[in-house]
Amino acid sequence: MSAPEMHATQAPVVDLEELQHARAQRRDKIAKWSLPILMLGLAIFLWDRIVVWNEIPHYILPGPGLVIQTLIEDWGMLSDALWVTLKITLMALGVAVVGGVGLAVLFTQSRYFEMAFYPFAVILQVTPVVSIAPLIFIYVDSRLAGLLLCAWIVAFFPILSNTTLGLNSTDHNLRDLYKIYGATRWQRLRYLQLPTALPYFLGGLRIAGGLSLIGAVVAEYVAGTGGIGSGLAFRILEAGYRLNIPRMFAALILIAATGVVIFTFASLLSHALLHKWHESAIKREN
């Protein structure tokens, strides 16, 4: 009789296992942010020490301090280049989204269309863009169009294949239900297939974001400089010819940072669109 009364006055009962579990969770939360930052800082520190201890000359391997200094000193030129590369990348990504989703929708609307054109998509995807790019710049007069085309070829395929898979992944019972209620093709696409494909598309977008940057950089290497100003890749080439290694590193860091930012944006977009309903965004207890 007295035991439950005693418990009632006490704090909620928490056993040892739960305490350990809670502690482990708190630790995980801290480590999730602190560990990557710590490791990154450690790597930069080691890089600096290796350069200093071995007295490596800056035209072979500059230290991190010098790279940052160069980044600041050359910011005028590098920021222009960053803007050029970023513009090409984002435009290519935009065209990849429109082209990839558009083709995927056409593929799912007509099996024959898919049979006819899927091989072309695969051929474009498996052929290295470096080997097509010189031809593109021979045939396409506009440099901007050429750069865009190269970046698009690399970026559109993950969006196309993911979205196609998504559009074809609708629940078969829901498909029956739509049929029973007399849904039109357009209604089925809009209310059923596109929402089903959304998580797949967003997965493709994350990959395509990185790939469009790669496509833009590769295209710049091939195209060299031209009427529309020079991007980061061209700056790297140019700095390499002049043995300006610190500037090569500075431009490289900007490219990597751009990639990280694009990936982060794609991830945030994914979270914003899916967190209310999709399994991937649900945190399970335990």
């Binding site: 629940d171 829901l174 999709h278």
Partner: peptide, 10 residues
């Protein structure tokens, strides 16, 4: 149907 067959996004 045997499954609830709801649209999870709705």
């Amino acid at each position: 149907f045997q499954e609830p067959t709801l649209m999870p996004w709705a």
